[in-house]
Amino acid sequence: MDWKTVWSEAVGAAEKAVKAKAPGARKFVKSIAEARKKRLELLLLAMADGALDEQTIDEELKEEKAILESEFLAVQVMVKKAAQDAANALIGTIEKALFKGIDFVV
């Protein structure tokens, strides 16, 4: 097996790994905006209802940042895992080719 074929197969395997994870990540990122809108509406309703004192309003606005942080940390895990799978698919394909090479040479 020649090196060019091995490399092209390795890149293909890496691309496939990324493509498999991309739709899930995209869907989640979209849902983040909707969830933030929903909670801000609930915050406005609670404020209008007089259910929150000034300190609570301040804490809830900070909470929004914390939720957004949690959501983007989850996105970070998804991206990292996709990159990890891609790197391992690439290395795995090269590794397999090398093993075949050993059989051939020895």
């Binding site: 969830a35 929903k38 909670r39 609930l42 915050l43 309703l45 609670a46 209802d49 259910a51 929150l52 609570t56 809830e60 909470e63 914390a66 939720i67 949690s70 959501e71 940390l73 989850a74």
Partner: peptide
């Protein structure tokens, strides 16, 4: 109050979903 319950419920739903 109920409106605060709804607000807090949503907060935990979002954190746990993440």
């Amino acid at each position: 109050p109920d409106t605060k319950i709804n607000l807090d419920r949503q907060q935990f739903e979002d954190h746990f979903k993440a």
